[in-house]
């Protein structure tokens, strides 16, 4: 039982990372209908910047993280402005290819700037842990930080989408861009904002992975592993990202824990294929209603 619980906890922790990455996919997809294959590399850049600031320059961890979050918002913003905006009106397919190009470009730049070795972001409370009384389960400081950060992020996003003027405008744009424009919503700004937010959640995910010891320039490939989480939850559903991420993380860890590491990798893709067969629009996604 405790083995099961322990696996579930670490599954949830890794699921949080997937959920955050999935959220990045979802935000951009919702606002612009573009699948952003550069999400993973935006995440990698954010993680490396935090690492450089905190480990190399000795900034306190949370200050480094805060500064990086702000910077990554602007990175997303700038990417939208410089690369995506000029592509406006082009077929979605070309735009997606551009994001793939962007991903490799960022990876190349990161290789030059941060080197090719594997790094780890030191979390201030690293090594400490909490034993849950009653059940034989240990929560590491990283686990707690991961779960808290993810929950806070999703709470913030929930409030943003449900309550704020920009959040509602973003959902309106996702629902019907044409009419959103008629209502005076500047859809270009909405798309820039979406990319900025994707940068922020990307950095969070990257930093968490970095704390777990996964920080190298190819860590962006992990984002592709999170892709099933986004699809599972529904590409246009924010809540779906968290559920998709959690399901994927837990399923992966449980399969890995009981059947051996080889099955771990398989799980994500089996889930992806099954979900696409049964519910092509995801668990919480909306069926696309074609409007002309």
């Amino acid at each position: 039982m405790s083995f099961f619980l322990q696996l579930t906890i670490s599954g949830l922790a890794i699921g949080s990372v997937y959920a955050l990455i999935a959220l990045g996919f979802v935000v951009v997809y919702k606002a612009t209908r573009v699948l952003n294959f550069a999400q993973g590399d935006m995440m990698m850049i954010g993680a490396f910047v935090t690492f450089t600031l905190s480990s190399t320059h000795g900034w306190p961890f949370f200050v480094a993280l805060g500064v990086t979050l702000v910077a990554s918002f602007f990175l997303g913003f700038v990417i939208e402005r410089l690369v995506l905006r000029p592509m406006l009106g082009q077929p979605v397919f070309s735009i997606i290819i551009v994001t793939i190009g962007l991903a490799w470009l960022m990876r190349g730049i990161a290789g030059m700037a941060f080197g090719h070795s594997e790094q780890r972001i030191t979390f201030p409370f690293s090594g400490e842990s909490v034993r849950l009384p009653g059940v034989d389960v240990t929560l590491s400081a990283e686990n707690i930080a991961t779960l808290t950060m993810t929950m806070l992020t999703f709470l913030a996003f929930f409030v943003f989408f449900q309550r704020t003027r920009w959040g509602i405008a973003m959902r309106a744009t996702a629902s019907n861009q044409d009419v959103a424009q008629m209502m005076g919503i500047n859809v270009n700004r909405i798309s820039a904002l979406a990319w900025g937010l994707a940068g922020v959640v990307g950095t969070l995910a990257g930093v968490i992975l970095g704390m777990l010891g996964f920080l190298f320039i190819h860590v962006g490939d992990t984002a592709l592993r999170a892709f099933p989480a986004a699809v599972l939850g529904g590409l246009d559903a924010t809540g779906g990202a968290v559920v998709g991420g959690a399901i994927l993380g837990v399923a992966e860890t449980l399969f890995g824990g009981y059947l051996g590491g080889a099955y771990r990798e398989l799980m994500a893709w089996i889930l992806l294929i099954v979900v696409l067969l049964v519910r092509p629009f995801g668990l919480f996604g909306s069926k696309d209603i074609e409007r002309v």
């Binding site: 509602i168 959902r171 309106a172 629902s175 019907n176 009419v179 959103a180 008629m182």
Partner: peptide
């Protein structure tokens, strides 16, 4: 203010949110 043909409300938003979105 342009009220488009065929109504075209924001289908996934609530009535209130539709109105709030229009007040952007």
């Amino acid at each position: 203010c342009h009220v488009p043909e065929g109504r075209q409300v924001f289908r996934d938003l609530t009535v209130e949110e539709n109105l709030r979105a229009a007040a952007f």
